[in-house]
């Protein structure tokens, strides 16, 4: 019996080791990226390859951050700024509207809600041309506005928040009403604080969507100062001769903060995605 248990334990140990080995291979592109970024340019292209750089240098990072004609700071700031602005505006407008849809009564409520929700089916690709024409008319092409404003009114936020608000017990609000609390105060002192998980989920979702947004910024932006991270990297890469050490340093600069964020906030992020993905 003891022997059988031991064999079982060894078996499970071997399986675990295999799974971890596989996971490490799956993750290895990121390791290879960092490894390349730490090598002097002349060692990046050599066979046989070295996973651990023969000599470690930070010159690629130095060059990407301080030397290049266009350094990494500006696009990084742009991406963060745009994502934050969209998150704030989305949370604000969506939560207000979701409050009306879920807690107030008014004429045309269901029709309006159905109208908003039906746009969930519309891929944003179909709006590329007309949005461009619109922003061109408004003279907003090539501005932060062009990257922020069209992203705000996503139907998804309303849908998610309304579902969540509907689940909040009414007793609390009724008690507040009896105490003479105004409807707006109910919104920001009862509904909002109770909806933190849904708001956080929407924030994460909005962040990812904007952080990874590629097509629209490619169309709406052509000045270097306004480039977002994906557009910056794509341009960096289109410059002709590719210096892989530099390029991988640039890629590492924008990847590592996100990875660290993922490691720290893993549970929250996974919860948020489950909430937005399955219940949404």
């Amino acid at each position: 019996m003891v022997k059988r248990n031991l064999i079982k334990k060894i078996n499970l140990g071997v399986i675990s080791a295999l799974i971890f080995a596989f996971a490490l291979i799956w993750f290895s592109p990121i390791l290879w990226m960092v490894s390349t970024s730490l090598k002097p340019e002349k060692y990046t292209i050599e066979w046989p390859i070295h996973w651990i750089p023969r000599s470690v240098t930070l010159e690629n990072y130095y060059s990407v951050i301080f030397e290049s004609v266009i350094n990494i700071f500006r696009p990084f700031f742009n991406s963060l700024f745009i994502a934050s602005a969209v998150i704030v505006l989305t949370l604000l407008t969506s939560s207000l509207a979701a409050y009306a849809f879920s807690q107030l009564r008014f004429k045309g409520q269901n029709v309006l809600f159905f109208l908003v929700i039906s746009t969930l089916m519309i891929p944003e690709e179909v709006l590329l041309v007309p949005r461009y024409l619109l922003l061109y008319k408004l003279q907003m092409i090539n501005s932060y506005n062009a990257l922020i404003l069209p992203m705000v009114a996503s139907p998804f936020g309303i849908f998610l928040l309304r579902q969540f608000f509907l689940g909040i017990p009414r007793d609390l609000q009724d008690a507040a009403r009896i105490d003479g609390c105004s409807k707006f105060r109910i919104y920001y002192q009862i509904i909002l604080p109770l909806s933190k998980p849904a708001l956080a989920a929407l924030a994460i979702f909005t962040f990812l969507a904007n952080w990874n947004s590629f097509t629209w910024p490619l169309i709406a932006i052509d000045s270097i100062e306004l480039m977002t991270v994906p557009i910056f990297l794509a341009t960096f890469h289109a410059f002709g001769v590719i210096m892989w050490g530099r390029l991988m340093a640039a890629v590492s600069c924008v990847t590592l903060p996100i990875l660290i964020f993922f490691c720290i906030a893993q549970r929250g992020i996974i919860k948020g995605i489950t909430l937005t993905g399955l219940k949404g």
């Binding site: 996971a23 993750f27 592109p29 990121i30 990874n212 994906p230 990847t255 990875l259 996974i270």
Partner: peptide, 19 residues
């Protein structure tokens, strides 16, 4: 294990393509 298997989806599209 979760970090190793799942985290790539957080990366920027351009970073993934370049790597």
């Amino acid at each position: 294990l979760r970090v190793l298997l799942i985290s790539p989806f957080m990366l920027s599209i351009a970073a993934v393509c370049m790597t």
